[in-house]
Design a protein around this nucleic acid. Structure first.
Ligand code: MN
Ligand code: MN
Ligand code: MN
Ligand code: MN
Lengths: 219, 219
DNA sequence: ATAATTTGTTAGATTAACTAAACTTAATAT
DNA sequence: ATATTAAGTTTAGTTAATCTAACAAATTAT
């Protein structure tokens, strides 16, 4: 129905439109690392096939049909990542590249079995939600650690993004999803936070890091 | 380096050349379900890239480099099938279609981990040998059940082919790899064999079936 | 030996995915 | 208001993978 290439376009549109609901082709072409005319002509074709709403010179968005399609690819991606971590012992920083390929496999039984063996998880190893079989996604609105005050406690539940560098940064500090963080103090100078968690008393995290750590308040 | 399409051509050549060492383009095009000129032009391109030995109007073969490449794709295919059966609970008749896609994934760590989790198996779920990391394959020369005589015993160790219909046929008769077969009698009329094995006394197998069951003699 | 058939090749087209270059429209700065 | 810049589109051309139709070579049958 759609090629892996087209699937990657839909997925890119899905994440780019997640907040604003609209994207321009330039952003899309940057994310996908293709030239502007390449993205332009693919968009025309996706529009003709009913995946994308689009008028010349206007920003674009996914149709409901396109959004569902994209969510189901994201589902395959995130199930795969979860499977690779939970069942095959990969680190959370190793799985994205593999999932980027596995997500294009066309086999209902394969992904259904993964889902079953994992016990129908609803988040991937980075805390991102896994859309259900209908492409519905329940967006949790987590706060970044940065909004908390000294003395408060919070549990790490997700990451704002999962770049390899960020994941390795967290690995080096043994900070995992589920960790209970206590804010010890905040530096006025650069808004960095001093935080304690299991076996790591008084770690200092820059503002950049704190904004990427998504947490839930504890008691 | 090579596209999934080209990988499928190499794999097809690998299996077609397994016995005779040479194939003609017509056979190849039939196996791959493409028209003759399509195969012809792909062969020209694979020849230019050094994967295939080829002269106009002559039958073709894989170069050593092409043979190794193909064996490594077969390795990924068979490891995948083994993984799907052993670790994910699929039936041996369900795995080929999935493996046909997974074999094109480009990730050393992924297949190395599969191999490791499986304990470095040397056969796939149908008893076909898994080439090693250098593309070396140790071809066991198994006998078909058809060459045995009444009163003899043999262990089922592989299948001459793994078509879905054949696998379902075996499923219905609960005949698995490793089964110990005793030849009870042979019908002169159609060369069918009457065979007993665990919980299945006196099953009759046609000549076609007997030739596809590869066995090892027991004491 | 010649004809018929099978097998393989070439030519010409199409579609998908991509690019560079040229052009147009929209946004922004002076 | 006009010039400059940014964003988007079109055109023309490439490569990979496929096809149909026409043709050529090799094999088999008469
Ligand atoms: Mn990912
Ligand atoms: Mn992908
Ligand atoms: Mn197979
Ligand atoms: Mn394949």
């Amino acid at each position: 129905m759609v090629s892996p290439t087209a699937e990657n376009y839909l997925k890119a549109l899905f994440s780019l439109t997640a907040e604003r609901g609209e994207v321009n082709i330039t952003e899309l072409s940057h994310l996908l690392q293709v030239k502007l005319p390449t993205a332009n002509s693919m968009i025309k074709s996706l529009h003709e096939q009913g995946w994308v709403s689009y008028e010349k010179y206007k920003p674009l968005s996914l149709t409901p049909k396109g959004k569902k399609k994209a969510a189901l690819i994201v589902r395959k991606h995130r199930l795969t990542e979860m499977y690779l971590v939970d069942k095959m012992g990969f680190g959370w920083e190793e799985v994205h590249e593999i999932a980027e390929q596995v997500e294009h496999i066309d086999s209902t039984i394969f992904f259904d079995r993964m889902d079953e063996l994992l016990g129908n998880p609803n988040v991937d190893p980075h805390g991102s939600p896994i859309p259900d079989k209908n492409g519905e996604i329940q967006q949790k609105n987590h706060d970044p650690l940065g909004v908390f005050k000294p003395g408060e406690k919070a549990k790490l539940v997700a990451l704002a993004h999962s770049s390899s560098d960020f994941l390795k940064f967290l690995n080096r500090r043994e900070l995992l999803l589920g960790a209970e963080l206590k804010i010890e103090s905040i530096e006025n100078y650069d808004n960095s936070m001093v935080v304690s968690y299991e076996n790591h008393p008084f770690e200092t995290f820059s503002k950049v890091v704190c904004d990427a750590l998504l947490v839930e308040r504890l008691v």
